[in-house]
Amino acid sequence: MRNCVSRDVLDLLASKWVCLVMGALPNGPMRFGVLRRRLDGITQKMLTRTLRDLERAGLVDRQVFPTTPPQVEYSLTPLGQDLVVLMEAFRVWAEKHGEEISEARERYDARAAEPVRALNAR
Rank of each mutant, 00 (worst) to 15 (best):
M1N: 13
M1Q: 14
M1D: 12
M1R: 13
N3D: 06
C4V: 13
V5E: 13
V5T: 14
S6T: 13
D8G: 12
D11H: 14
D11V: 15
L13C: 05
L13Q: 04
A14W: 02
S15A: 10
S15H: 02
W17H: 05
V18F: 02
C19L: 02
L20D: 12
L20C: 07
L20M: 08
M22N: 02
G23I: 06
A24D: 05
P26C: 09
P26W: 01
N27Y: 08
N27T: 04
N27R: 08
M30I: 11
M30A: 12
R31S: 10
G33P: 03
L35A: 04
L39P: 00
D40E: 15
G41I: 12
T43F: 04
K45L: 03
M46T: 15
M46R: 01
L47M: 06
T48Q: 13
T48W: 10
T48V: 05
T48E: 06
L51E: 00
L51Y: 00
R52T: 08
L54W: 00
R56T: 15
A57W: 01
A57E: 06
G58A: 03
D61Q: 08
R62M: 09
R62F: 04
Q63W: 08
Q63H: 09
V64N: 03
V64L: 07
F65N: 15
P66E: 10
P66G: 11
P66V: 01
T68D: 13
P69E: 05
P69W: 04
P69V: 13
P70L: 10
Q71L: 10
Q71H: 15
V72M: 03
E73W: 07
Y74L: 10
S75R: 12
L76Y: 02
L76G: 00
T77I: 06
P78V: 04
